[in-house]
């Protein structure tokens, strides 16, 4: 039987990234079109980016990780969320969001679209048959 090993907290970190990205996005969106301090959102983005990098490192340290399954799920998830993030980006541009606000919103969407493939790919790969990868 396929035993589930003790693995690093990749899923928990992914949820933390998601929380930071959404919190930063809601803070900024709730103040549009006014100019407000970008600091809270920038802090969220920086921490989220560091956590995404940490997750990539942690997955790399897992012995016999099912990379085949991980990439199979991750690539299609990436495609789906690039479409979703792209639609939202289009809306922000259409609405006249420009400059630093647009840069921050774009960073938020990029992190959103990068984090989910890692999260979904890891969730499926952790239960995968190693022999098939």
């Amino acid at each position: 039987m396929n035993q589930v090993k003790k693995l690093p907290p990749v899923s928990e970190i992914s949820v933390a990234v998601l929380t930071l990205v959404i919190a930063g996005g809601v803070y900024l969106a709730s103040h549009l079109p006014q100019h407000v301090s970008m600091t809270p959102t920038v802090v969220c983005i920086v921490i989220a980016a560091l956590l995404v990098i940490t997750n990539v490192y942690l997955i790399n340290t897992i012995p016999n990780f099912a990379w085949g399954t991980f990439f199979l799920v991750a690539k299609w998830t990436l495609l789906a969320y690039v479409v979703i993030a792209g639609t939202l980006e289009y809306i922000f541009i259409k609405d006249g969001v420009r400059g630093s606000t647009l840069a921050i919103m774009t960073s938020t969407l990029v992190l959103f679209a990068l984090n989910l493939p890692i999260h979904f790919g890891f969730t499926v790969a952790r239960y995968a048959d190693q022999s098939k990868n």
């Binding site: 949820v15 959404i22 399954t69 999260h119 499926v124 239960y127």
Partner: peptide, 20 residues
């Protein structure tokens, strides 16, 4: 936002995990 965290953080990965 809270629903998105629950849906994308827990619900959707569980859905995919079951299917695989």
């Amino acid at each position: 936002g809270l629903m998105a965290i629950i849906a994308l953080g827990y619900l959707e990965p569980a859905n995919l995990g079951v299917l695989f």
